[in-house]
Simulated scan of single mutants.
Amino acid sequence: MRILVTEDEADLLHAVAVSLRGAGFAVDTAADLAGADEALAVNSYDCAVFDRMVPGGRAAPRVDTLAYVRHRRRTGLRVPVLFLTALDGVGHRVEGLEVGDDYLVKPFAMEELVVRVRLLCHRREIARPAVLRHGDVELDAGTRQVRRAGVLLTLTRREYLVLELLLANAGRPVSRADLIRHAWDEMAQPATNVLDVLMAGLRRKLRQPPVIHTVRQVGYRIG
Rank of each mutant, 00 (worst) to 15 (best):
T85P: 07
D178K: 07
R70I: 02
R2P: 06
M1F: 02
R21K: 13
H122Q: 14
H122F: 09
R116M: 04
R72F: 06
L66H: 08
D28S: 13
R70D: 13
P129A: 01
D32E: 09
A34S: 10
G150F: 01
R78V: 10
V218A: 09
C47I: 00
Y68F: 12
E9S: 09
Y103G: 00
L166E: 11
L87N: 11
G135D: 14
L161W: 01
T154D: 14
P80H: 10
A177F: 02
R72V: 09
L206D: 10
L155K: 04
A17F: 03
H182V: 01
R147L: 11
G89T: 14
D11E: 14
R172N: 08
W184Y: 12
E138N: 02
R74K: 13
S44Y: 05
V69M: 05
D28W: 07
V5G: 06
A41I: 02
L155Y: 01
T29E: 15
G76K: 11
R128L: 14
V197K: 13
H134D: 12
R124P: 00
V211G: 04
E159Q: 15
T75D: 13
R21Q: 14
A86T: 14
A41N: 07
R144F: 05
E164N: 05
L113F: 10
G24C: 04
M199D: 09
P209L: 05
M1P: 15
M110A: 12
R124S: 13
I3W: 03
C47V: 08
I212W: 04
L119G: 08
R123A: 11
N43Y: 01
A191C: 06
V54T: 03
G201K: 09
P61H: 03
R221F: 00
A15Y: 00
A41S: 14
L77C: 11
G100L: 08
A39V: 00
T29S: 07
L195S: 01
S44Q: 13
G171W: 08
G57M: 12
